[in-house]
Design a protein around this nucleic acid. Structure first.
Lengths: 133, 133
DNA sequence: GCATATAGGTGTCTAATGCACATATGGACA
DNA sequence: TGTCCATATGTGCATTAGACACCTATATGC
């Protein structure tokens, strides 16, 4: 548990609870991506801050493959170390669709949350002596 | 990790990673709430489905108190078992404000995610033979 | 030779939390 | 009286995610 998301964070270091839908979308956008590239592109879409652990990405991708959401193949072409390229399966696309539906609902809840927050916070500010920020 | 949020969920049962801001807002809306009531009201604002474990709520509230985000007092008035009433402290309000800021950013990321999803999904549907739904 | 960027991992420990279970009060009802 | 249910608050255990440290390998620049 965290005091607040971007706080000095007392003990916890929990990161992306929502890596899965991000990786699935990035694969939909560019099928055949490899882990290192996905880890870099995931930062822009990360719901929990711009930090994305590459090791978490690799593990997630292996889990995807075990569950049949992606298949992979080695790519030894080009310079540098070999890349393992990942490709979405039909099941992967289906999973992504379910994730997207859930995230739409989440956005609805988020809107309700923020609306209620805006309704409730002014009184609290007044009642406690108008703290700044 | 989950295949998808509302899937038959193979192994995991992870619930609300975002209980904290919900409870803080509910306390702002009705200061002096008790855990059982918060658990019921939290279902409407839960980002991960309508299930909210009361035990998680109680544990979260005790953690809040330990961290100084709330203070509590026993209420033996009225019928039934005693309630422990919780009151936000200034630190609790501050934490809520930080959470709200983070959730605003999250909604921005969510918007980008859903926009990119809508851009990318039609091609995938066409390329794979227009699956239904 | 050595650092750095790219690329892909494993091992381990901690924190979150779902589930089962324990406790107590008071009302309904037979 | 006894039993059941709703309210109300918790604890203990086992599973799980994930942060961090660490390891390997290739190619390029200095």
């Amino acid at each position: 548990m965290e005091l607040a998301p971007t706080f000095p964070s007392p003990t916890s270091r929990r990161q992306s609870t929502v890596l899965e839908p991000v990786l699935l979308l990035l694969l939909l956008e560019k099928n055949g991506s490899h882990g290192y590239d996905l880890a870099n592109r995931a930062r822009r879409l990360s719901l929990t801050g711009p930090e994305v652990e590459p090791s978490s990405v690799y593990r997630c991708l292996r889990w995807f493959e075990k569950e049949g959401l992606v298949r992979s193949e080695w790519d030894n072409e080009g310079p540098g170390a070999s890349r393992r390229r990942y490709f979405l399966t039909d099941l992967g696309v289906k999973s992504l669709r379910l994730w997207a539906d859930a995230l739409k609902r989440q956005r609805g809840v988020l809107d309700e949350y923020l609306g209620r927050y805006r309704m409730a916070i002014p009184q609290a500010m007044a009642g406690r002596g108008k703290q700044s920020t």
